[in-house]
Design a binder for these strands. Structure first.
Length: 913
RNA sequence: GCCGCCGUGGUGAAAUGGCAGACACAGGGGACUUAAAAUCCCCUUUCCGCGAGGAAGUGCGGGUUCGAGUCCCGCCGGCGGCACCA
């Protein structure tokens, strides 16, 4: 190990202990008393008082995506985002904002349960140990979290409210008239709902949390169903086990009701375009029309969805999904055997096979025909698995001339292809042309689209269909309802019981009493599913069966449940009577118009930082729950997260993704031991822009570590440090106490700053402040390096200049900053105020102005000279100076000067030829 | 295939349309040292030149502009997302 640059190993734990003991970073809810000696209170004249929301400074809620506390411990990727948010939290605190910066644990999840299945150890035990390890690691990095608000999704005091929110969804429906969630009591019933049982069935079919028999992704190896999003290439996202489709009774959440609002409200929030685009694609809104086709020789009609009703005249066949309910009815006897064989083939094909063989079209003719409503054409009806049962109506009209998939199918089975769209550019072949053009060959009895541009043709044919009662304008979404139940032990039990109607024998579900929450999971000896495939909770018969004969729901909620709302629990984490008090929720989520520096307090979380892996699922689910809570009056903003930033991935030193198997994983504990938390934090920010993917480089850590060593040497007296080191060597047990032997250098003192010193400082203040506002941490650090490189040789070092510099450094490397801050104040005989709450330095532009500036001289756009130009020089002066330049002259002499472009304070360009 | 992002020295990277390569890492040279480590100083885009200096240069090809790493069009390469969604 190289020589230690400065005693970070003594400094860092000391300040971490002090911050924890003094609750330095505690945030105060409206109505909470602020201790008389708390630095936040002292800064804002609120010490010993109990301020209301109006009396507290404007809020800043800065949130990290909380981790799953895995057995592997923290990874260098975690602290990247955490460091960025911590720097901003400390910066905003210094600016006078009331910062909410919490941390917690997303602790339900599969690994602890699988470990329990293997070893019989209760997941609680594993989880507690892992949380302890994560806590130790995160604390060793010196983040300014308010630990009094720590949450743990597996804590009954937490999941009580997860269950409570589920019941809010359960007891609500989406009223299409008002476009929002309302209590189920407002559901209007149709006249035929004349019995309580019918009303119940009607009501249960409209709840935001409902039960459906649905084909699900069953993973036999994990013994559970998975959401579509948790299945990747036909395998489970966790573990990579095979997944099969299987119909099962499942709890679903009606997120599709919110599809439009989830889409529209992206306009309210400050997320990257790429992230918004991912959400838009996932929601997958598409406008089109539903059209009814009469089946030839049957009473039934087939309804199709199309985004191109303008191509209706080009429909030469129809395709139903193999699972379509009309298939059995319309199949002719001669085709029956083949159709049934195909249905079996399609059902047995896994998603993986469907995807891999996507381009090879398969299908079978049913023997039936349908009538095209616009021209009366009799077209064959096929089934094929390229038509999905779960999208649109599960049936399509095929227009092979203008749809790639239909064309491939038509070519395979030699079906006719009829042009109905003329491409806008001559020479573009019409066959397979899928864009917009002009309608052709599109006339029938009572309607003609010929000559109309696609958009007009769509409008006209849709209006015609609507007039005839043959179809209507429709919007479809790719987004599906959220499959919300899992067959696991280590998750929130559903607060639901099943009852049997003694008269009819029919089963129905009911919510348990709100007052009986939390519903605890039962204790088990064995965490596997039961022999007959029931979830593990079914093993606990005493828990399962209630005295009145009712049975508990045995599914549990997915891991997303706890992470859907944790940002709300932080607002008031210990509240036993509500998920958060209304006052706390309003204060932290809406703030009030800002005073002082920094952005206006945002509607929702001011800044949320986390990985891209949650770009769709977590963020969509959380937005959905938040909107339901908003509709029901439990929260006051339509969106949970105002500004969202994705941190980039950190790769191994070899440029590959870090993984155990590659052996390129960097353990933060090792880095901390050798270089300390301050250097670690600084390096993670110095590597490059936060959002970029970048490789780890241990030598890069040494670079910033050396910088911190230079900062240390900027302040301390070398001789005293030698004494300190000798004392430590002689008496290592009291190393911390020996720190007192370190004195600051005699060159540091209360002396007036020179103009050059002030200029160096204020340039640094300006750059660091501006960069922090834009989250450009790497360039802020380089500005501080430049300051230190310039300040090291100063013969005298004014304490005021050094103090301001420490403040700039503090958000990045807070331990060293605190230590030097304290020493500096002691050195000049003044008491040290709390660094964490010291007002952020402001720069004085007057100190940065010079009386002249460097002016590049270009000839024909090429740099030829740099002139020193006085500020008051006119354009003519500058031009004259440039023309007189000895270095530039040879490049235009003898040529005709065409033009001289003078851009004051930028450049002068002489154009000559 | 579609959508999005990104291509700058040996490496990580800087650069409101105005001096490309700040700040670091690595490398080379030097000071200090009995020696090493640590520290400090100098050099370090490429090519030509002893030098002063010159030429080229931000994935490739065009364009706009007095001036393009930056803006526009077309390619090539990488990363991420979606993927039979009618």
């Amino acid at each position: 190990m190289a020589r230690r640059q400065y005693p970070f190993h003594l400094i860092e734990p000391r300040w971490q202990d002090r911050w924890l003991a003094g609750q330095t970073f505690r945030a105060f809810n409206p109505g909470e008393s602020i201790p008389a000696d708390h630095p936040f209170g002292l800064r804002h004249n609120l010490a010993g008082r109990t301020p209301s929301a109006d009396e507290l400074p404007p809020k800043f809620y800065i949130l990290d995506m909380f981790p799953y506390p895995s057995g592997a411990g923290l990874h260098v990727g975690h602290p990247e985002g955490y460091t960025a948010t911590d720097i901003l939290a400390r910066y905003r605190r210094a600016q006078g904002r009331h910062v909410l910066h919490p941390m917690g644990w997303d602790a339900f999840g599969l690994p602890a349960e699988q470990y329990a299945i293997k070893t019989g150890q209760h997941p609680r035990v594993t989880t507690t140990a892992n949380i302890a390890n994560f806590t130790r690691q995160i604390r060793s990095l010196g983040f300014s979290y308010d630990w009094s608000r720590e949450v743990d999704t597996t804590d009954p005091g937490y999941f009580r409210w997860t269950q409570w929110i589920f019941l809010q969804l359960y007891e609500a429906w989406f009223n299409p008239a008002t476009r929002r969630a309302e209590p189920v009591s407002t559901i209007p019933y149709p006249a035929d709902c004349d019995t309580e049982a019918r009303r119940r069935a009607y009501r249960d079919a409209r709840r935001l949390a409902y039960v459906a028999e649905a084909p699900v992704n069953w993973c036999p190896a994990l013994g559970t169903v998975l959401a579509n999003e948790e299945v990747v290439d036909g395998k489970s996202e966790v573990g990579g086990f095979p997944v099969v489709r299987k119909p099962m009774r499942q709890w679903m959440l009606r997120i599709t009701a919110y599809a439009d609002r989830l889409l529209e409200d992206l306009g309210l929030i400050d997320w990257s375009d790429s992230l918004k685009e991912m959400q838009r694609n996932w929601i997958g809104r598409s406008e089109g029309a539903e059209v009814d086709f009469q089946l030839d020789g049957h009473a039934a009609k087939v309804r199709v969805f199309t985004t191109r009703p303008d191509t209706l005249f080009g429909a030469t066949y129809m395709v139903l999904s193999p699972e379509h309910r009309l298939v059995a009815e319309i199949t002719t006897p001669s085709q029956r055997a083949e159709v049934e064989r195909y249905q079996q083939f399609a059902a047995g094909r896994s998603d993986l096979e469907r995807t891999e063989l996507a381009k090879d079209k398969t299908g079978v003719w049913t023997g039936a025909h349908a009538i095209n409503p616009v021209n009366g054409a009799r077209i064959p009806v096929w089934i094929a698995d390229y038509v999905l049962a779960s999208y649109g109506t599960g049936a399509i009209m095929a227009v092979p001339a203008h749809d790639e998939r239909d064309l491939a199918f038509a070519r395979t089975f030699h079906l006719p292809v009829v042009q109905v769209v003329q491409p806008p550019h001559k020479g573009t072949p019409w066959e397979g042309f899928c864009d917009e053009g002009t309608a052709v060959n599109s006339s029938g009895p009572g309607i003609s689209l010929d000559g109309l541009p696609t958009a007009d043709a769509k409008r006209q044919v849709t209006a015609w269909l609507e007039g005839k009662g043959l179809g209507q304008r429709t919007v479809n979404f790719k987004l599906r309802d959220w499959l919300f139940s899992r067959q696991r032990y280590w998750g929130e039990p559903f607060p639901i019981v099943w009852k049997t109607d003694p008269a009819t024998g029919e089963r129905h579900h009911e919510a348990i009493e709100l007052g009986s929450l939390p519903l605890m999971p039962p204790e088990l000896d064995d965490y596997k599913p039961t022999e007959d495939g029931q979830p593990p909770l079914a093993r606990a018969t005493a828990w399962l069966e209630l005295p009145d004969g009712a049975l508990r729901e045995t599914n549990t909620m997915p891991q997303w449940a706890g992470s859907c709302w944790y940002y709300l629990r932080y607002l008031d984490a210990r509240n036993g009577g509500a998920f958060a008090s209304g006052d706390a929720e309003r204060y932290w989520m809406t703030g009030r118009p800002g005073v002082g520096p920094g952005p206006e307090p945002a509607s929702g979380v001011d800044l949320y930082v986390g990985g891209t892996e949650h770009a769709v699922l977590h963020l969509l689910y959380a937005r959905f729950w938040h909107k339901v809570l908003f509709d029901l009056g439990h929260v006051s903003t339509p969106e949970p997260f105002h500004k969202l930033v994705n941190q980039g991935l950190i790769l191994g030193e070899d440029g590959q993704k870090m993984s155990k198997s590659r052996g390129n994983v960097v353990n933060p504990d090792d880095v901390l031991r050798e270089y300390g938390a301050d250097a670690f934090r600084l390096y993670e920010m110095f590597m490059g822009p936060l959002s970029e993917t970048k490789p780890w480089n241990t030598q890069g850590v040494e670079g910033v570590y050396r910088f911190l060593g230079r900062v240390w040497r900027l302040f301390v007296d070398e001789a005293s440090e030698v004494e300190f080191e000798q004392a430590c060597a002689a008496d290592p047990a009291h190393a911390t106490a020996h720190l007192e032997r370190v004195r600051l250098a005699p060159s540091v003192g209360d002396v007036p700053a020179t103009p050059a010193q002030l200029k160096a400082l204020h340039a640094c203040i300006r750059k660091v402040t501006d960069d922090l506002e834009h989250m450009r941490f790497n360039t802020a650090i380089s500005a501080m390096m430049m300051f230190v490189n310039e300040a090291l040789p100063w013969p005298t070092k004014p304490s005021g200049v050094l103090a301001s510099f420490i403040q700039l450094l503090a958000p990045f490397s807070p331990h060293l900053a605190e230590d030097l801050w304290e020493r500096l104040h002691r050195h000049v005989g003044r008491p040290a105020p709390s660094l964490s709450y010291a007002p952020w330095p402001t720069f004085d532009p007057a100190l940065l102005v010079e009386d002249a500036y460097d002016m590049p001289v270009q000839v024909n756009g090429k740099l030829r000279d740099v002139l020193r130009v006085p500020n008051e020089a006119t354009q003519a002066d500058i031009e004259a100076a440039a023309m007189a330049s000895a270095k530039a002259r040879p490049f235009f002499e003898g040529k005709t000067i065409r033009k001289v472009v003078v851009v004051p304070r930028r450049t002068v360009n002489i154009v000559a030829n």
